[in-house]
């Protein structure tokens, strides 16, 4: 092995501990410098390792986090944006954050030796406390408003996505009817077979307990393929629940039916519960 080959071999050996995050800071720095120098061999090796290891979590049972996690994420994004904007605004406006405190301190110092001074200081302190409470209320109001803004932004974005799907030239649709457990339920799927995006909407389905979820199935050549889970957990969702999703179905001719069953939370590899909605492509 030549010196150059040995050198390359040394770096290849570092790829595995690097992707596992187990290189010491010195070796890590050296390895990253080597990568930055443009070594295609190590970059390709890293790509292969990353791809292989990224498959590992696929063996875990998939689970949708609570929807509040997403709401909090977007609230943090909006809040960070607002903070950075207000930081830019403050110097321009010439505001001083410490102004009320400075005023109060000055009041205490100048009237220290007289009753009048104590009275002024007390009033100033009361004003500060009142301002504090008022500010706190304002912060709560702003947080609530921000959450509403995030919810509205998400809704607007969803509607835009829906419009894009509905504007498609080759839109396909299948209606789903309520079955025995929920005869009043109904649903529909519109999808763009070219872009493979879909709008899935259901109404009048019973609310599900925490340990259960509905699961959508695509029935293709007699095979039941899982196509996502969802839960109806509020009256609003019971009235109408919809989601935008990808759907790998090219044409109605490709599938025999769509069905919705009630399954344990997280879904099942094959249907185990009762059928709540069924839509056959032949009837449309």
């Amino acid at each position: 092995m030549t010196t150059k080959q040995e050198e390359r071999h040394k770096y290849l050996d570092l790829c595995i501990p690097y992707v596992f995050g187990r290189l010491n800071p010195g070796n890590r720095k050296q390895f990253e410098a080597h990568l930055a120098s443009g070594c295609e061999v190590c970059s390709a090796e890293l790509a292969r390792l990353n791809e292989a290891l990224a498959l590992f979590p696929l063996t875990l049972k998939q689970e949708q986090p609570h929807r509040k996690v997403k709401e909090r994420l977007f609230a943090r994004i909006v809040s960070a944006k607002r903070t950075s904007e207000s930081r830019r605004e403050l110097p321009r406006r010439g505001l001083k954050k410490e102004t009320p405190i400075t005023m109060a301190t000055e009041a205490v110092v100048t009237s220290q030796r007289s009753w009048f001074g104590y009275a002024i200081a007390s009033v100033a302190l009361l004003i500060i406390v009142a301002l504090g409470i008022y500010t706190n209320d304002l912060i709560i109001t702003v947080d609530t408003q921000e959450q509403k803004i995030v919810a509205l932004q998400t809704e607007v974005a969803q509607r835009e996505e829906m419009l894009k799907i509905l504007q498609s030239q080759h839109i396909e649709m299948v209606l789903m009817n309520g079955m025995e457990p929920s005869p009043s339920g109904y649903g529909k799927i519109f999808w763009d077979p070219v872009k493979k995006t879909a709008i899935f909407q259901v109404s009048q389905l019973p609310m599900v307990p925490e340990d259960k979820e509905y699961q959508l199935w695509v029935i293709r050549k007699g095979e039941k393929l899982p196509a996502g889970v969802f839960a109806v957990r509020s009256e609003k969702e019971q009235e109408s629940y919809f989601k935008i999703m990808n759907l790998n179905v090219e044409s109605k001719k490709d599938v025999e039916a769509f069905a919705v069953t009630l399954e344990p939370k997280g879904g099942s590899p094959q249907p185990t519960g009762s059928i709540y909605l069924l839509g056959t492509t032949s009837l449309d």
Binding site: L58, T59, L60, K61, Q62, E63, Q64, K196, A198, E213, Q215, L216, V218, L225, P226, A227, G228, V229, K243, M245, N246, L247, N248, V249, G266, G267, S268, P269
Partner: peptide, 11 residues
Amino acid sequence: HATSDSDPHDL
């Protein structure tokens, strides 16, 4: 074991 519950294409 492995199950999937995101959208159909991904699934």
